[in-house]
């Protein structure tokens, strides 16, 4: 009964950045549990998705930190380390994923401004760019295979394939998340809770997508510019 939206003001405050949701990383600033008056049901707080996605990012960072430290140790542990010349198509990959970060941000802001059609459009462009990135990565793999550079040919190659595959899999997860947003969050919801969840899901997917972008750029530098 109370959760049916009768005035849009509540929704706007809830999603448009009230004092609780503006900026920050989504972690509670006071340690005092959830808001609300006694006896009232507890409201969904959108920070939930953000905390969840930051935790996921934390664990992915640890995974890549482990692999990176293995990369650094291994590069110094034998005299068999032979970096390959960078496939030029990786510049295209990098360009695509950086642009996709921008389009994702446009999409998220459109949702904040309640321009739902624009939100969906830019989301679709982001998905296309993400798929383009994966395609470009696969082209790079195929070029290397044609040159006879395989996973086990050299420790450097092993790491190259491992890093690109691990990043690609995580990005594929991101594409699935965006597809979910496309299929399930383009309709406005009728409840405050539903709206909060819709915007929260888009927010956290955006954070994840930016992280994938940053992660790729870091790996790109590690693989081809770090000596």
């Amino acid at each position: 009964m109370a959760a049916t939206v009768t005035n849009t003001e509540g929704v706007a405050t809830a999603i448009g950045g009230g004092p609780r949701s503006r900026g920050g990383n989504g972690f509670p600033k006071n340690g005092g549990g959830r808001d609300g008056k006694d006896g009232e049901p507890l409201r969904f707080t959108p920070a939930r998705y953000r905390i969840g996605v930051w935790m996921a990012i934390g664990s992915i960072v640890m995974l890549f930190t482990a692999l990176t430290s293995a990369y650094i140790v291994r590069s110094a542990s034998g005299n068999d380390w032979q970096p390959i010349a960078m496939p030029k198509v990786l510049w295209l990959s990098t360009l695509l994923i950086v642009i996709s970060s921008v389009t994702m941000e446009v999409s998220r802001r459109s949702l904040k401004q309640q321009r739902d059609a624009r939100y969906g459009r830019w989301l679709m462009i982001t998905v296309a760019l993400g798929l383009g990135f994966l395609g470009s990565q696969i082209i790079a793999w195929r070029q290397l295979v044609r040159q006879g550079i395989y996973l086990a040919s050299n420790p450097y190659n092993s790491f190259f394939y491992l890093f690109t595959a691990a990043h690609g899999l995580h990005l594929l997860g991101g594409i699935m998340a965006l597809t979910y947003l496309l299929l399930r969050t383009r309709q406005r919801r009728s409840t405050i809770d539903g709206e909060l969840r819709r915007v929260g899901a888009a927010d956290s997917a955006t954070i994840y997508w930016h992280f994938m972008d940053v992660l790729w750029v870091a790996l790109f530098f590690l693989l081809f510019f770090w000596k």
């Binding site: 006071n30 340690g31 005092g32 549990g33 959830r34 707080t45 939930r48 905390i51 664990s59």
Partner: peptide
């Protein structure tokens, strides 16, 4: 599981349940 535990604890504590 770990992701879930941390989020639950940070986000879903009831009224008055401060960390301490």
């Amino acid at each position: 599981g770990a992701l879930n535990f941390i989020t639950t604890l940070l986000n879903m504590r009831t009224r008055g349940m401060s960390l301490m």
